[in-house]
Nucleic acid binder design. Sequence first.
DNA 1: CTGTTAGCGCTTTCAA
DNA 2: TTGAAAGCGCTAACAG
Lengths: 345, 345
Amino acid sequence: MGRKKETVTIYDVAREAGVSMATVSRVVNGNPNVKPLTRKKVLETIRRMGYRPNAVARGLASKRTTTVGVVIPDISYAFFAELARGIEDIANMYHYNIILCNSDLKKEKELQLIEALFEKQVDGLLFLGGEVTDEHREIFSGSDIPVVLAATRDEKEKNRPFVTIDQVQAAKEATEVLIREGHRRIGLLGGPLTDPIIGYPRYLGYREALLDNGFTLEEKWIRLGNYRYDSGLKAAKELLGTEEGPTAFFAVNDEMAAGALHAAQDLGKRVPEEISVIGFDNIPLASQIRPLLSTVAVPMYDIGAVAMRLLTKYMNDEPIEKNQVVLEYRLELRDSTRLQGELAH
Amino acid sequence: MGRKKETVTIYDVAREAGVSMATVSRVVNGNPNVKPLTRKKVLETIRRMGYRPNAVARGLASKRTTTVGVVIPDISYAFFAELARGIEDIANMYHYNIILCNSDLKKEKELQLIEALFEKQVDGLLFLGGEVTDEHREIFSGSDIPVVLAATRDEKEKNRPFVTIDQVQAAKEATEVLIREGHRRIGLLGGPLTDPIIGYPRYLGYREALLDNGFTLEEKWIRLGNYRYDSGLKAAKELLGTEEGPTAFFAVNDEMAAGALHAAQDLGKRVPEEISVIGFDNIPLASQIRPLLSTVAVPMYDIGAVAMRLLTKYMNDEPIEKNQVVLEYRLELRDSTRLQGELAH
DNA sequence: CTGTTAGCGCTTTCAA
DNA sequence: TTGAAAGCGCTAACAG
């Protein structure tokens, strides 16, 4: 009593069943080269002895662990949680498990995590959001483990596989919705411009929309936040309180957009009659507030799923026709803009 | 070119540094019994050769993988995402990685996942939400791997470690808020009564509140949903449309509560003047809608963190003073009830 | 269809 | 403080 359970190994099963380890290994791995009767016998003693294959030993011998590493900024963000779900579903479908790591977008942590994942001999790595620096590239290229980027891309190493959407174009189109509505004073609720994944490209799209349509970029209508609801709320309140405040907001994500929407309401302005708001991502929150938030619908689940599927191809040496995929987005115009309906991209 | 990168092993390092494998192993593992000069020399050649320890081999030899399995219903639910964050943070702090698996609360999938995790030789397992059946117990007890439950408990096996809150009591108190406001017709937006973790206990709390306060349980004011916003919205609309509809709702989670709140608003009823709503969990959504949602604040992050910490104690054979912990919750009364302020439990 | 035999890369006594 | 050697449990040729 109290002592460790005896672990039964493939060798024990072999002895009991009166066959060799190799044969047991074959039936465990579904190798067809086993006489049905032998298979039956082995299966029976496996069941009887409660044998459970040791995946670590298998991993060492076969050099495949059937687990993939996933480095993600923060699983508690709806956006990434949904992405992770897409990843895990496909991983599961192909019999992989995922080791999930939150990086908080900190470079040092990312590097350390990637290193740890490589030590654990993951068969592949999915790297989400966060800038790919030379140090990342160095680790990536120092090993044969396939790496695919999801919801981001490497601006420098041009052939690194990725799955994402066209952030700039989407941001531009979202801003243009506001322009088409007749707004002339359009505020930006942005993220850090140092964020090459969200903050910067979506800012670029906003900028392009204004300039292409004959507007000038007004610093005073731009506020950079941290993607959270509160930062959108606060920034919008400030802007709305100024003399010549914006009459519409493009927020680079839905949380901040929701904050802006409520800021307007809290100040007694009606949305969308007086103030229009458009967000980005289409997380559940967008359809859980009133008025319903107009937004750019990003296929979050699909980004994760497609990226994972691509990774499986690398891991199994399947032919790869396209290793960089740009998924489509939609403009989902609900009730926080006067323009409404679903606009195909 | 194109051929596999040569993997450098501990043996290569030993040869190059002119020491034995054992010595290299010692410095890699921080064993103090190494002469400083030797350590320096080894470290140097490790760096020079780009040696990366193989955690799989280490795992096989040492029988510790420093990874723990996490079986969770659905990471895309805000509630579980937040819990997962708590888990991962603490895991990371103790140098463990987590293998994250979504079970969708399906028993068969749970069992298969647990089995796979055990095969992968995880050092411990965190099992979240979902009923613990005899089949679960059989797998759990068939191995020495420590298992702790989070956000749930085992009603039958009385000494299985867990970390959760008192669901029944919390639900009761939430319902009593509505009673104290003077409501006599209180609707329940519940989950499946077959869910022993959320649906059933929170229903029990609602029931107790009514009966203890001299009310009768009215079937017609009870609607069972699937925890999602839409199901709360739909159920509340139906109830509000009936002759003698409820004037207040207790929803067993915030998403459904938000749905109810909007249902009331969509029907032109004011919250909380005409209709009160109280939710459960305190996910971010609760403070991202108007009016702000009153709710039971569940320490989601802490449940995950404490459960993981408890698990580390098991994995490291630390003394355990308390292996079943019931965390405190708070009533966070915001603007969807007339009673307001933060009520300590 | 089945068995034999090397490892996989590392930890861990046990001696020295 | 260091080294030698025996595994950890399994896969993968190879031989038959």
